[in-house]
C-alpha cells in the first residue's frame, strides 16, 4: 500500500474518531457559535440602550484624544485613580456602561469592565469588536 493510501486510511479513522468525539464528549465545543461571555455585547445589542448608555474607552489617553466614541469617558489602568472620579461624575446607576478598546483581540475592555463590576457598577459590559467595530459601523 502506498504512503498516500495509508495516509488516506488514517484520515478516515481520524474523521470517524472525531465524529464520535464531537457527538458524545461531555466537554465538546459548541459547534454553532462560540461560547459567549455574558458581559460581552455586540454593537447591535447596544442599539436599544441608546440614550442611556455610558461608553468607556479603555485605550490610552492619546488614542482617546485622537478619536473616541462621542461622549465616551476614558478609563484605563494607567490613570484609574484620576479618571475614576470623572467616570463617577458621568455615571448614574440607571445607565448601562459599555467598555471598548481597540479590537476583538484586545482584552483591556474585558478587564476594565470586570474592574467596574467589582467596584459596584452592576451593568458593565464590554464591546465585541471594540473601536474597530464601532468605526466600521459609524464611519464607513
Amino acid at each position: 500500500m502506498t504512503a498516500f493510501r495509508q495516509a488516506g486510511l488514517i484520515l478516515l479513522v481520524a474523521v470517524g474518531l472525531a465524529g464520535v468525539t464531537a457527538a458524545v464528549h461531555p466537554k465538546r465545543p459548541p459547534f454553532l457559535a462560540p461560547p459567549r461571555d455574558p458581559n460581552e455585547v455586540t454593537l447591535a445589542q447596544t442599539k436599544p440602550w441608546a440614550g442611556n448608555i455610558l461608553w468607556v474607552d479603555a485605550r490610552s489617553e492619546s488614542e482617546f484624544t485622537t478619536e473616541h466614541i462621542p461622549d465616551a469617558v476614558c478609563l484605563n489602568f494607567e490613570n484609574w485613580n484620576d479618571q475614576f472620579p470623572k467616570f463617577l461624575d458621568r455615571y448614574n446607576p440607571s445607565q448601562r456602561v459599555v467598555v471598548y478598546c481597540s479590537a476583538t483581540s484586545c482584552q483591556l475592555s474585558r478587564e476594565i469592565a470586570a474592574k467596574l463590576k467589582g467596584s459596584g457598577v452592576d451593568e458593565a459590559y464590554f464591546l465585541e469588536g471594540g473601536w474597530e467595530a464601532w468605526k466600521q459601523q459609524n464611519h464607513p
Binding site: 500500500m1 502506498t2 504512503a3 498516500f4 493510501r5 495509508q6 495516509a7 488516506g8 486510511l9 488514517i10 484520515l11 479513522v13 481520524a14 474523521v15 474518531l17 472525531a18 468525539t21 464531537a22 464528549h25 465538546r28 465545543p29
Partner: peptide, 24 residues
C-alpha cells in the same frame, strides 16, 4: 478541536504499532 487530536491519536497509534507507518 476534535479532529486534530483524533488525527494525532491515529498517527501515534499507527507509529506505535508500526502499521501504516508511511502514511503516518
Amino acid at each position: 478541536s476534535v479532529f486534530l487530536p483524533a488525527l494525532e491519536l491515529c498517527v501515534g497509534i499507527s507509529l506505535l504499532l508500526g502499521r501504516w507507518e508511511s502514511g503516518a
